[in-house]
Design a binder for these strands. Structure first.
Lengths: 252, 252
DNA sequence: AGGCGGCACTAACATAGGTTAAAAAATGGT
DNA sequence: ACCATTTTTTAACCTATGTTAGTGCCGCCT
């Protein structure tokens, strides 16, 4: 809370990222100005727009200001798997400096507002701010942890558990950037098909599972807003343990 | 081949890593000596030994010289999911400098020979050798790509396709460090249970699938040695496209 | 306000893959 | 070489999830 206000009082345009990093490291004024210095160009993507596609050459790194994005892959027969979601404060194409071209689809999942940082200035900023570089590397490593945990879900948890687990994870991640209401309610701008593609189940089964979760009073969904009615039971069902997110101790 | 010999003539102890990196970057003598400088302590793990366990504090990074390792996670009910395999030239606990403690099991899958590099000297080497740091970051990013592709497999490919895909991937990765014979034959020191745990299927089903692959003449297994009899057909079945490994053009 | 298009939901049926149980074969230690 | 373990293989049966085929709802656009 305090951190939240501190960040906003500075009127930073990189609020969400700072929220995510503080608690983890001490975000100095220097880092903040280095970040704002480099976050000059904004871009807006319409829902469904491709930020980048497989085979396309990386040109920039993106920092999400508002909205959701997805990283996804397709099988040769056209089936889609969503690898991960990105929310405000997350980077897109963070590995742009390492690889020439993308191997995945990065799409705006809602209307998306982001800063566009060309690779060159981004790399230079990292060289000048080693502490910040480490913090952002942490961010990337955290994402790998998230993908690993999803792999565990797809490999070894039932569709019901997977779904519960994803909801717990999103809830936690959104909390980090203060996008969850007191009532454990948050916006989840995803169709059941999107969820199915993230969890490796069919659309029909996704629907069965969601209704099951609703019927048993664990969650309630209205419009694209979800409320976790019994967080404890949901986490227990999912076998959710947030260790893999490596969040700072004090996080809610 | 040429690269292979060049590396071996130098009598480097970091052969496999250099093999992996060359082609990607120009591995200078400076980098090699920085690497050998830091790779002084060797450790041998017996098959099944834990290199690190969840909750345990990171102390070192490891560079595999010989043998295989796995990164795996358990569900709360004890089911295991292997996240990835590590082969000679791969690092273990590469994120040790970023996180305090491990969230996964890292185990010696065979008898394992590795260099042990304490975090401090490892970080210092990276700071002194930015080019090498970038190459190793590339390595870490490649692993994330591998995990993502496995997620696609578990989410959207049949058990048969997944199995074929994993075999194609291991074949390709082993080729990078010259551990595949001309005949597309290589050592695969894994029980069917291990493969099952990597692919998110039951042991029994894993057995069905492997016999299917053998019966249809795609592979042959004897002892812990596998031979891909029809690489083209296997890749086609798997929908295998090695783009996600981001290998240099000329790689076999 | 009406109509269109995407989503959510239902139902009946099909199957890939899971479970349990047990035998055969290979491996490794002494 | 022999015994103890581990690993592979078989078989019978079961279920979670997929597929196909719809209906109806809701939000958005004009």
């Amino acid at each position: 809370m305090a951190t939240d206000q501190a960040a906003r009082e500075l009127g930073l345009m990189v609020d969400y990222l700072v929220l995510k990093l503080s608690g983890l490291i001490d975000v100095t004024a220097d880092m903040k100005s280095a970040l704002t210095m480099v976050c000059t160009t904004r871009a807006t993507f319409a829902r469904g727009d491709h930020v980048i596609q497989p085979g396309e050459t990386f040109k920039s790194v993106y920092l999400i200001m508002d909205g959701w994005a997805t990283r996804s892959k397709l099988t040769s027969s056209g089936a889609r798997q969503i690898i991960n979601f990105a929310i405000p404060g997350d980077f897109l194409c963070f590995n742009a400096a390492l690889f020439r071209e993308s191997e995945v689809f990065v799409r705006a999942h809602t209307r998306l507002e982001a800063f566009v940082v060309p690779i060159r200035p981004f790399s230079e900023m990292l060289l000048k701010q080693p502490q910040l570089a480490i913090a952002l590397a942490w961010t990337a490593a955290q994402e790998e942890g998230i993908v690993s945990e999803r792999l565990l879900s797809l490999g070894r948890r039932s569709a019901l558990q997977r779904s519960a687990h994803l909801l717990c994870e999103i809830h936690k991640r959104l909390q980090t950037v203060r996008l969850v209401k007191e009532t454990d309610q948050f916006e989840l701008p995803m169709t059941q098909e999107d969820l199915a593609d993230a969890l490796g189940v069919s659309l029909i089964h996704m629907n069965r599972v969601l209704r099951n979760l609703s019927k048993t009073g664990l969650i309630s969904i209205k419009r694209s807003s979800v409320r976790l009615l019994d967080l404890k039971a949901l986490r227990s069902l999912a076998g959710f343990d947030d260790d893999y997110l490596h969040l700072p101790e004090h996080a809610a």
